[in-house]
Write a protein that binds this DNA or RNA. Sequence first.
RNA 1: GGCAGGAUAGCUCAGCUGGUUAGAGCGGCGGCUUCAUAAGCCGUAGGUCGCCGGUUCAAGUCCGGCUCCUGCUACCA
Length: 676
Amino acid sequence: MTRQLLVTSALPYANGPIHLGHLVEYIQTDIFVRYQRLRGHRVAYVCADDTHGTAIMIRAQKEGRSPEDLIADVASQHRRDFAAFGVSFDHYGSTNSASNLAVCTGIWKNLRARNLIVERKVDRLFDPVQKTFLADRFVVGDCPRCGTKDQYGDSCESCGSTYAATELKNPRSVHSGASPELRPSSQLFVRLEPLQPFLEEWTQRSGALQPEVANYLAGHFLDKPLQDWDVSRPAPYFGFEIPDAKGNFWYVWFDAPVGYIASTTDWCEKSGGSLDAWWKNPDCEIVHFLGKDITYFHTLFWPALLHVGGYQLPRRVQIHGFLRVNGEKMSKSKGTFVTAARYLEHLDPEWLRYYYASKLSDKIDDLDFQADEFVGKVNSDLVGRVVNLASRSARFVESTGLATHYPDDGGLFARGATAGEAIAAAYEACDFREAMRLVMTLADAANEYVERTAPWTIRKDPARADELRNVCTVVLNLFRQIVVYLQPVLPRLAERASGLFASPCDRWNSTTEPLIGCSIAKFEHMATRVEPERVKAMFVPEAAVPAPSASAPTPADANDALGKEPLAAQVSIEDFQKVDLRVAKIVAAEAVPEAKKLLRLTLSLGSGPTRNVFAGIKGAYEPERLVGRLVVMVANLAPRTMKFGVSEGMVVAAGTDGEVYLLSPDTGAKAGQRLH
RNA sequence: GGCAGGAUAGCUCAGCUGGUUAGAGCGGCGGCUUCAUAAGCCGUAGGUCGCCGGUUCAAGUCCGGCUCCUGCUACCA
């Protein structure tokens, strides 16, 4: 029976380049999609750029251009990267599209009709100079919990606490630097609690979710009243203005998943299909692939929107873990934050496809990229075992072609055909690791056959020409069977093999019927080996790489630190001089056991009493290794009483999102010296 | 803090509803081979299955407790 599947990958945010972590998902989805096509099913694979929100807006501002201009640039870059890795979207759209606005509007109307939208007056910060309400990230001030300066209006990067923008101390507008005023604003919320029974049923009993996900939702959200979801943001905001609430925009997480539908709509338009035949067709299986970080958006809000909007719910939500590199989080400073473009400068995309396939399971486990394992898998599995089969047999039959009857192979080909069922089941379950393992056992068996029959010996005896041809017919058929099984993972290898046989490797069914009598093209290498040095070169930290040529178009690739932390309002030299920065020596350092992030530092300023300072750097520095080191401290910061004691100053460090880099003076600086 | 997941050979992982000497791939070691992109084949060594206790004729597999790792967390419980 021919199935019909509508498959999506999560929409990448239009605020940065695609990197190896993204590619886990797109490659995983693409393998699934190609597998389904290989089986003869009808598949639509749609995706889009997620383009709205504050971060995009801020970045566009910093770069002095319109958000539309920015997202167009990033979109073309994303498309190029995906194409290079063979990700075979049927349509790649944008959430900033007419179709998306239309679908959002439709769902919104239904939410209104079901009385699921409530409006509440909330006091929000208002910029009296710009005469606009300020989104959370357009306000900076001191964290109400720990006092850290220059924190956004949603959460503190130092202590991790979250709060309302109105709680910030000494708040300022990012636009004008003015102190915002409190003004009542009407915010719109989606009420989720009335949908509780539906969500309970769908998450716990539909079978769409992996069991650990269902457990997570049951224990986290469904066991108590669901909170209303704040879906509006006041202008200015890059996004869609809410049609019946002028001056308010849909929060990016409202219109982002709707982009799946919009992109499907656009694809239907372009290909002559209709949404009724796809998303709204109960026989069409909708499958979402996404990372575990965005689980609840896709398993609570999104089904709620679909349900109310009158759209079919996903049949399956396939969630994967994060990519780590050599056991650690990806890190720019360690060079393990590798963009797609950077990978392509060094390595072949099919290698990564195979490597990921050999590691991916249907679990939510993180996937660890290990350089030496990568080299080993590619070189020994792909080249040594699979491609080598063709390479050690094809040349012998270039002139004669394959035998006209399939010879006795001791049941090898039949065994391979039977194994197809288990391989198919593994693909279907997204247990690609298992699929690769099974395929490799077939390759092992084929190599043993070559060893046993020793065609290089047969060849020496002209009287045994038929036997030589028979043996090679077997080996090449086993090779071809394997290549078809690997086609979802290695489409380019399959194409090259197709050229060898002058017969496409594009149908799963062809694995049950040996190819006979056909000619064999001149053998050419189908895959190259990885040189370990090239992998090593890819992981050289950016800073150590010679500056790229000036002609390279880099705007979209620019470091996004500014976007994450916009420049603060201008200050005078007098303002700056109020802050007394000093070189300080760490004379003692210890972890605060009860705290997640804090180290207790004892700092010397050369003379006078030492200072006790808490620093949120536990995750990045070993206390023992800090002792004796010089750092920069804010020496005249008002003491602050914290849970674990009084902090008498602050150690300055750079970094966002959990990265922390302490500053060190050059050699020769002495504790106590002031910074000017 | 809560929750979820994990902890099995040097590395990456299988081990379903408890049942004979715990498996695979890679890596290691020893041979063989030379058709092939120094590829391939054969053999071999490696594990007190995180720790403690319990249920059972029998536990990696079930139950309780603990330790460590990872992730998530809608002020959080």
